[in-house]
């Protein structure tokens, strides 16, 4: 098992290395000289050269790369040329909004996927099953931003039961005392139930819009796994022992069906945490996604580059966590096949 963990960690380091090289190369070949961008079109070529020298763009590539990556891991992510603030500060300010939305969306997506997969596979329910499968197709076919607009039209413009695209809280509401800077959690910590409710209402529509395509993917995966596992002979054996249908299902089908879903869950969480540029845009969500959206428009490459790298690192970390989780909970990974007698 030690070996398994070592291999996974090593693989993750490799993946991060690959991601950094890729991000580095992409930024070097993209059109637009950063020095020129920083100094503006009227700057002299001497000034551009000087700045190039100052930020090290005239150094050999490997030196540049080394500087770039050691800066990255020390948290020196550079400065946004458009407003001069440090990228670290900009991202730090906006990360809690994205993380809160991601976690909320992840939880409701998982719950909905598990619930519906169970509903459509436990016992033979052809009609429910068909409806669930149809619904999941819908999720696949609908672009998330379109769904976001649809949700806004129905629940905000027409029914007036959920807030519109006004960010994390209504205009009059004040943010709760900052602890985690996730408003729902901070509101609960501060005991401000009103604020909590307000923050939660603001999460619902973007959470749904963000989760829909992953929901479709997860529900189909879970459904297939559950169907497959519930046909396994060991389920029949468990029933043959005298176990009630649900007990046999819960004890033997569920764990075996969920195990392969861990990987998918990790991917989905990673995707959510990386933020959705479009969804945040539609809902005016003040998260990393909106920041990056603006940065792309302004060719603010320090932000974009950091964002790419951060997402890659986070993705790798989430997957590493999933792999390690396997090693802990799946006996077939934990214990070698060849037992020593």
């Amino acid at each position: 098992m030690g070996r398994v963990i070592a291999m996974r960690v090593l693989g993750s380091v490799g993946a991060v290395f690959g991601a950094t090289v890729l991000a580095f190369m992409i930024m070097r070949v993209l059109p637009g000289n950063p020095a020129r961008l920083i100094l503006g079109p009227l700057a002299t070529s001497q000034a551009v050269t000087a700045l190039n020298h100052h930020i090290g763009l005239d150094q050999p590539l490997y030196t540049q790369y080394w500087r770039y990556i050691s800066d990255f891991f020390q948290g020196n992510w550079g400065y946004s040329y458009s407003d001069g603030a440090s990228v670290r500060k900009l991202i730090g300010e906006r990360a809690p909004a994205t993380i809160e939305l991601a976690l909320f969306s992840f939880v409701i997506t998982m719950l909905a996927a598990v619930g519906l997969a169970l509903l459509s596979t436990y016992r033979h329910r052809p009609i429910t099953d068909r409806i669930v499968r149809g619904a999941s197709y819908l999720g696949f076919g609908t672009p998330p931003f379109f769904l976001a607009l649809l949700l806004l039209i129905v629940f905000f413009s027409t029914l007036h039961i959920l807030p519109g695209p006004e960010g994390r809280l209504g205009v009059q509401a004040a943010a709760p005392a900052a602890v985690t800077r996730m408003y729902t959690i901070d509101a609960l910590l501060a005991g401000e139930l009103g604020t909590f409710w307000e923050a939660l209402k603001h999460l619902i529509l973007p959470g749904l819009a963000l989760g829909i395509s992953s929901f479709s993917f997860l529900v189909r995966l879970l459904r297939a796994n559950l169907l497959e596992v519930s046909r396994e002979p060991f389920i029949t054996v468990a029933r043959g022992k005298g176990l009630r249908r649900w007990t046999a299902f819960r004890r033997h089908a569920l764990p075996n069906a969920f195990l392969p879903t861990l990987t998918a869950g990790g991917l989905v969480l990673g995707e959510f945490l990386a933020g959705s540029v479009l969804i945040e845009r539609v809902f005016n969500w003040p998260g990393v996604g909106s920041l990056v959206f603006d940065a792309i428009v302004k060719q603010d490459y320090a932000i974009v580059q950091t964002f790419i790298l951060l997402s890659a690192v986070m993705f790798v970390l989430v997957n590493l966590a999933v792999d390690l989780l396997y090693a802990v909970i799946d006996p077939r990974v934990r214990i070698p096949t060849v037992a020593t007698a």
Binding site: E232, P233, F234, T236, V237, A238, H252, L259, P331, R332
Partner: peptide, 14 residues
């Protein structure tokens, strides 16, 4: 009941 395939008649994670 005893079933045919001993490799799938037991729950692999229990």
């Amino acid at each position: 009941l005893v079933l045919q395939d001993p490799s799938s008649a037991l729950d692999p994670v229990k």
